[in-house]
Design a protein around this nucleic acid. Structure first.
Lengths: 276, 276
DNA sequence: GCGAGCTGTGAAAAGGCTGTGAACAGGCGC
DNA sequence: GCGCCTGTTCACAGCCTTTTCACAGCTCGC
């Protein structure tokens, strides 16, 4: 994500020096950012490298190769994983692909084909994420400017940190849709969420705090209990007597909420036992 | 409606009858929806098929294969394209991959590997875009939006909880069919129902309550005594005499709209005119 | 018509999820 | 080094959801 749109960030786990030398020359000619690693790298470090793709000879890891493949693929669902190894059986290839590899190439192999396959894997990932950025996004009083990594209300900056802004951007881009925590985490942090991680909640709270401070009469982030969060600018119903805020999806764009009981009774009609 | 989440919709463009026969058997065993096409299909028709993946032997199309590959990939960025053909050179494979193919397999090839590679292609595509899959479902006044985990009547949210929504979705997806409690439980809760569990009944009641509140003139969930439940939007018989406050309980007076006890199934319990 | 079994209904108990404040750790500039 | 900023982790409180229970009404077989 940090590099230019067309560039590929790649790590290579292999030890075939001749193969590596040829590949390296071509990677450089193509302007790819690559790093060659001789042994298995802890998945955590792979996370930190913010890669697009991983080219790996699983035979280096012996029998641990399968587990490694599975862990890396599970932890980095967005990473393109291409296995390039010598002398594999159909069963091995099927197993590797099912464990999460995106492609499996037999060695020896022409470097141009290796690159074309890596490109195909990365392209597949990228084109399914057509972010139509460019113009600033506006919702309610809020203006999100991707080019500045910042959001504004009446030209006053919210003072968002990087993570806060990325979270806001992910939520706002899916305008109106509910996004589950796992997906939010995946898209903001770049890797799979550990079970029990509350980071998303904490950042939602920080975001809400800053949003409320500069735009108190609007509500932007809605909680969907047991599911995730949804972004949609809604005017806050200030006159509502009680228990008004949940996920009512009012059609409200006008100044005042519709008196047709839009926001009133929706989420938890059970608490107030209605005797009758 | 289109297909279950895990299923793959696939078109095969090939003419190798032996290969096709073997593949077909495996596709069916795996529950994939597939269609075999002998010649090149206009890309427009491919669009209409709402496919996940396309398996194609480009040699069928001769020199037009390249152009076809490019057009299909360009027109359907979400489609996984796997080429499976005999006797290709490195240059051809590179060209095909660069034109938009996601994978290129040499023929002859083990069907299991073909499937694993198709799966890998589709999996990669799904991970990065799990949304925008299902359009909203409409029945009567009700609109079920999967992307919001919510249902609406006249753009007003029912305020369904997660379980309530999932129950509604399971019922609505089987439009018109009666589903047994065991199956409902299995599909919503994900595991087998314990004997004597009343959870499904309780949630049906909650669902009915919320449906009736916002859409009182329709009935959506019908009980089939001794069997299960059936979803179908039906207008409530308005000719009932004192129908003002009946909504709370479908319990009945003699003229209730749903002739329930039908273990003998009468697919259409609609009553044209029952005057008391 | 009667009884057994099934379903509807209301409410309370149990469990899980989210909001919240604050402490802790790492990075960066001064 | 020191202080500030950012991001992460933790514990607790509160609320919502789900489950469970008891009872009443309804169907169906006899």
């Amino acid at each position: 994500m940090s590099s230019q749109p067309g560039t590929i960030r790649l790590a290579v786990i292999d030890d075939d020096s001749g193969f590596l030398r040829v590949l390296a020359r071509r990677f450089e000619a193509a302007g790819w950012e690559y790093r060659i690693v001789s042994s298995s790298l802890p998945p955590d470090e792979l996370v930190a490298m913010k890669l697009n793709a991983l080219l790996i000879d699983v035979s280096l890891l012996g029998s641990l190769g399968w587990e490694y493949l599975e862990r890396v693929s599970g932890m980095l669902p967005d990473l393109g994983v291409v296995v390039c190894t010598q002398g594999s059986t159909v069963a091995q290839r099927v197993r590797g692909l099912r464990l999460g590899a995106d492609d499996w190439i037999a060695k020896p192999s022409h470097p141009e084909e290796v690159m074309a396959r890596i490109e195909a894997v990365v392209r597949r990932r990228r084109r399914s994420r057509p972010r139509a950025e460019t113009g600033p996004m506006v919702a309610g009083e809020l203006e999100v400017r991707a080019d500045q990594y910042q959001a504004f209300v009446a030209d006053r900056s919210l003072g968002l940190t990087r993570r806060e802004f990325e979270l806001l951007q992910v939520l706002a881009e899916a305008n109106g849709r509910v996004i589950e925590r796992e997906e939010i985490y995946q898209r903001v942090w770049g890797y799979a969420m550990a079970h029990g991680d509350r980071s998303v909640d904490v950042f939602v709270r920080k975001l809400r705090s800053k949003l409320t401070k500069l735009s108190p009469s609007w509500q932007y982030i809605h909680t969907h209990f047991g599911v995730g969060y949804r972004f949609e600018a809604e005017p806050v119903a200030a006159d509502a007597p009680a228990a008004a805020d949940l996920d009512a999806t009012a059609a409200g764009d006008g100044a005042e909420p519709d008196p047709v009981g839009v926001t009133t009774d929706n989420g938890a009609p059970q608490r107030a036992a209605q005797t009758g």
